[in-house]
């Protein structure tokens, strides 16, 4: 009895101390992954993911509380990059990548209230009070914040128009035979 207790205790002590020493020598400085994740997010702080901003979303991602598919403006590409970084698998077919979208002003209804300009995270809407506003396509991130504040529903989202340069061949239909 004493022997068995003693031997087990001794072994535990010995192995424990070996591991203790090892942990000192093999210590790794945990790389704060949060910063890296934040760098991958668009940074427009649009809040579509449900978090206040991209930094908070990155923190949630790092803790594993949020799915990598959380960022609608980032689309598939961002989800893929995040998944690769976090080493998780992701079913990208679920990501609603209706193609990146951008906002568009219906000029007939715009009253030039300037509300959309104020909420736009990237200053992509130009115009002045009582003037019809316009969206700079290249700068719009498709966060749709402006759509929510527009009092006349003059703002809507539309897919980025396909151009000759952006057109790609569709995937061949896989014949099952």
């Amino acid at each position: 009895m004493l022997m068995s207790v003693g031997s087990l205790a001794a072994m535990g002590l010995a192995l424990g101390s070996v591991l203790g020493v090892a942990s000192r020598y093999l210590a790794v400085e945990e790389n704060p992954i949060e910063a890296e994740l934040q760098a991958m997010l668009p940074g427009s702080q649009c809040g579509q993911c449900g978090y206040v901003g991209c930094a908070q979303a990155a923190a949630a991602l790092a803790k594993g509380e949020a799915p990598v598919t959380l960022c609608p403006p980032g689309g598939k590409a961002t989800a893929e990059a995040l998944a690769a970084k976090l080493g998780v698998k992701v079913d990208l077919s679920k990501v609603s990548d209706s193609g990146p979208q951008i906002a568009e002003v219906t000029e007939e209804i715009c009253i030039g209230c300037c509300r959309c300009m104020k909420v736009c995270p990237t200053d992509a809407i130009i115009g002045a009070a009582k003037q019809i506003h316009n969206v700079i396509r290249e700068a719009c991130t498709g966060c749709s914040s402006c759509v929510d504040v527009c009092p006349t529903e003059a703002l809507g989202m539309m897919p980025i128009p396909v151009t000759l340069q952006h057109w790609t061949w569709p995937k061949p239909a896989s014949a099952h035979n």
Partner: peptide
Amino acid sequence: RTKLRTDATKRLA
């Protein structure tokens, strides 16, 4: 292109 766009967005933001 999306990635470049994301980067550009970040700069704009």
